[in-house]
């Protein structure tokens, strides 16, 4: 094949757009988005926050879970335009600004609760939200597995994630 220069001008999207103003990981953002763009794509490709992953785009696998206005939710089932005025937390906002891992991240690390890492951010955000909101979580095996049941993992068989949650929940309860 010959070396080539681009053969056509860059194509354009003619999608209708809207301006949205929101906060992401504490930072105010003002952006113009296509009205059909999913929040997952907005975070990943517009803002470059690629820690939120896309596994199914129909809300089942949980990889895309973020925290919206203080409640966990599937970013693949949310339009970016719905987020005007919203406050969003993603996995990138979980560790401290000096890089120290959040208790939950540290627990995952210590308990070997991740392998390929693709499902991990979704688990972290769903769990952080649940644990922050639940004063006295039931930490029985069954109960923890129920909390985890909204997220699919294909690598770990879940057991180490259960152990990580148990550790983190105890530590988070101590802190409050």
């Amino acid at each position: 094949m010959n070396n080539r220069r681009p053969t056509a001008s860059m194509p354009r999207s003619t999608d209708p757009t809207r301006e949205i103003n929101l906060t992401v990981n504490g930072e105010p953002i003002s952006w113009t988005v296509s009205t059909r763009m999913l929040l997952s794509d907005f975070l990943r490709h517009e803002l470059g926050l690629t820690g939120t992953h896309v596994g199914c785009e129909h809300g089942v696998c949980g990889c895309c879970t973020v925290i919206i206005d203080g409640w966990s939710g599937r970013s693949c089932l949310t339009l970016a335009v719905q987020m005007d005025g919203a406050d969003i937390r993603t996995v990138e906002g979980l560790a401290a600004s000096d890089g120290t891992l959040h208790l939950l991240q540290q627990a995952f690390h210590e308990h070997h609760a991740l392998q390929c890492g693709f499902c991990t951010p979704g688990f972290l955000m769903a769990l952080v939200n649940y644990l922050e909101r639940t004063a006295d979580p039931d930490l029985s095996e069954q109960s923890i597995r129920e909390i985890l049941s909204g997220n699919l993992c294909r690598c770990t068989g879940y057991q180490n994630i259960v152990a990580a949650v148990r550790q983190a929940a105890a530590l988070m309860a101590k802190k409050t």
Partner: peptide
Amino acid sequence: AHIPIRNR
């Protein structure tokens, strides 16, 4: 479903 679905 699951909690994140019920949240929204």
